[in-house]
């Protein structure tokens, strides 16, 4: 079973309408490629994600927002800041580095 099966994944950007939606779609492509079925994959604004992050296993954000999520890793949440929010290859590489996909 893939390590991300039944995990909760969140994608955040400033507004929760543009780049976080792109991130969600790019993440979904990686999930499909690996046949992973996360329990939840959604996007939201950083303002909401800040407090919600602790309830997720993996949180993606655009790099400028990484510092907003300082501390969420103490709860076991894996934070993955992205340079290019629509790049499935970057997401795939980051998940590999985090040991979440093989």
């Amino acid at each position: 079973m893939a390590k991300l099966d039944n995990k909760k994944i969140l994608a955040c950007c400033a507004n929760g309408a543009g780049s976080s939606l792109m991130m969600e779609k790019a993440i979904d492509k990686v999930m499909k490629k690996y046949g992973i079925k996360p329990a939840e994959l959604r996007h939201c604004p950083v303002s909401e994600g800040k407090s919600a992050a602790r309830n997720y296993d993996v949180v993606f954000c655009a790099r400028p927002f990484a510092k907003t999520f300082d501390g969420c890793e103490a709860n076991g949440t894996v934070l993955i800041p992205l340079k290019n929010v629509m790049s499935s290859p970057e997401i795939e590489a980051a998940l590999k580095e985090a040991g979440l996909i093989d």
């Binding site: 950007c13 400033a14 507004n15 929760g16 309408a17 543009g18 780049s19 604004p45 655009a62 400028p64 927002f65 290019n84 929010v85 629509m86």
Partner: peptide, 23 residues
Amino acid sequence: ACIEKHGPYVVFENYIAMPHSTE
């Protein structure tokens, strides 16, 4: 106002800008 607050994160590679606000 959003770009002033959060920085130019709506500007991507290849000279693309996707200015937007919330839904």
